[in-house]
Amino acid sequence: MSTSSNGLDLNELRDRWIGVEFDWATFEMDTTQMLAWAQACGEVDPRFIDPEHEDFQAHPGFTTHCMSGRLFPENFPQIGGGFGIDGGKRVDAHAAIRAGDTLTATTTIADIFDKTGRSGTMIFIVQRMEFRNQSDTLVSTVDWKMIKKAD
């Protein structure tokens, strides 16, 4: 399907919005928070639960809690009905995140697509946040799938 039920052309939307940067934010990586996250997840690997370990680092999904200031770019059209639901997250861990790192995140729309199933047609909007540390090394990419009903 290339046109949603409210008349939006998904191909046109993809051409217009995918890859456009629309939010920038900075996050400080805090030892206590990193440790508490890993412990609450039941982690046993000392790289994640022992701040004295030489390779102490954030749990792989730690950046998923770092939210951009905006969900969508300014002037992004209303797609589908309502706020939508959280469809899940993908994390690519490119390099270790260390306590004390300052991460700069850039947010884009990575994809817009639809799927039709028993519940009708759903539109998926994928928000991507790329996190770079103070050395400009890409350390983490988080793709957040937001699902909206087309009707």
């Binding site: 609450a40 982690e43 998923t64 809690h65």
Partner: peptide
């Protein structure tokens, strides 16, 4: 949801 992902990551490390 993000905790469920963290729980799975911990399982992998175990």
């Amino acid at each position: 949801g993000i905790m469920s992902q963290g729980l799975l990551a911990a399982m992998i490390h175990k």
